[in-house]
Design a protein around this nucleic acid. Structure first.
Lengths: 153, 153
DNA sequence: ATTCAATGTTGGCATGGCCAACATAGCAAA
DNA sequence: TTTGCTATGTTGGCCATGCCAACATTGAAT
C-alpha cells in the first residue's frame, strides 16, 4: 500500500474524489508506518503490535477471542502469534477447561517490546500530522471518528 | 484491504491513534469501492478506471507515460491495458515515430464505460461521506489535501 | 448418543504496490 | 560509424493485508 511513486498528475475526475484523497492519505500514513517498523520495529509488523497491545490491555485470551477483539482473522492470528512466540514475546498454553483452546499471555519481554513500539508509532503520528495545526488535527480526527461511527450498524 | 470484520473492541493505544483512524477510514472507503465495482463494474477494477480516466482526459498516450501519469507501475499498466483491450475499451497501436512505443487510445465504448463507472463511483462517495454534513465534508477534504500537500517534496 | 458449534491450523486467493530482467529500439557521443 | 546509454513493453516474480475453505479435535446441547 505504500505508494511511493505518486502520480505526476492525476485525472481530475479521480483527484477530486474523497475516496482518492482517503486512499492517498492512507498510502502516506501506511508508508511512514512501514518505514517506522522497518527501522525500529525489530522485525515486527502491525499485526504483532495489535496483538501485543490487546494482550497487554485485556490480559490473557484465547486466539479466537484475540481475533474477534482485534479484527484479525483466526488464521492470521495463528501465524502472527507463532512469530511472537518464537521471539518469546508471548506464551501459549492449553486452557485446562477447554483443551481445544490456547491461552495466550504476554511475557515481560513482550511488554517491553510493546513499549518500544509505542514510541516508534508515536513518532509516526507526528510525521503524518505534521502539516496540520493542533486544532486541525483534532478536527481531522473528529471527522474520521464521525465517519467511522456508522461502521457499527 | 476491505476490513469487513472490524474489531469488536480495539486496544486503547491503537484506537485513538490517527494512523488507526486513517486506516479504518480507508478500509471503509475501499470496501465500498470494491463492492461498487463488483456489482456494477463489469469486471473492472480501480486500475482500469484510472487508466480510462487518464486516456479520456489527456488523450492518447504511450504506456510509459500512462504509468508515470497515473502512478501505476509499467508492468501493471501492461496487464490492465491488455484486459481493457480485450474488452475493446482501448486500442493499442505502434507509434510510427518510435516503433518501440505503443500509442494507447480510448475507444467510444471505453468512454461509455468510463461514464458508467463515474456514476458507480459517485454513489460510493455519497455512501462514504454520508455521516458528514456538507460543510464537514468540505472541511474533511481540505484537511486531507493539506496533509497530502507535503507529498510533493 | 448424536448432532452442532467453536477452536486452532493449514493452505490458498485477490488486490495493490513493487522490483528485476530482458529484448528491442532510438539517440548520442566518440 | 560504432559504441554505448536510455527508454519501452513485457514477463514473471515478491510481499503485505485481508479474506475464505477445509479439517480434525473438542465441548456442549439435544
Amino acid at each position: 500500500m505504500p505508494m511511493d511513486h505518486p502520480p505526476s498528475r492525476t485525472p481530475a475526475r479521480v483527484a477530486d474524489r474523497p475516496t482518492w484523497l482517503i486512499s492517498r492519505t492512507f498510502a502516506r500514513s501506511s508508508g511512514l508506518l512501514t518505514a517506522g517498523f522497518e527501522s525500529h520495529g525489530h522485525g515486527l509488523r502491525s499485526y504483532h503490535y495489535r496483538l501485543l497491545a490487546a494482550l497487554d490491555e485485556w490480559g490473557p485470551a484465547s486466539q479466537a477471542d484475540l481475533g474477534r477483539g482485534t479484527g484479525i482473522d483466526r488464521s492470521d492470528v495463528t501465524a502472527a502469534l507463532s512469530e511472537l512466540e518464537s521471539r518469546r514475546l508471548v506464551e501459549r498454553s492449553v486452557d485446562p477447561a477447554h483443551r481445544r483452546r490456547n491461552i495466550v499471555t504476554i511475557t515481560p519481554a513482550g511488554v517491553q517490546r510493546l513499549l518500544e513500539l509505542d514510541n516508534v508509532i508515536d513518532d509516526v503520528q507526528e510525521q503524518v500530522l505534521k502539516p496540520l495545526t493542533n486544532p486541525q488535527r483534532r478536527q481531522f480526527m473528529a471527522l474520521m471518528a464521525k465517519l467511522l461511527a456508522a461502521e457499527d450498524e
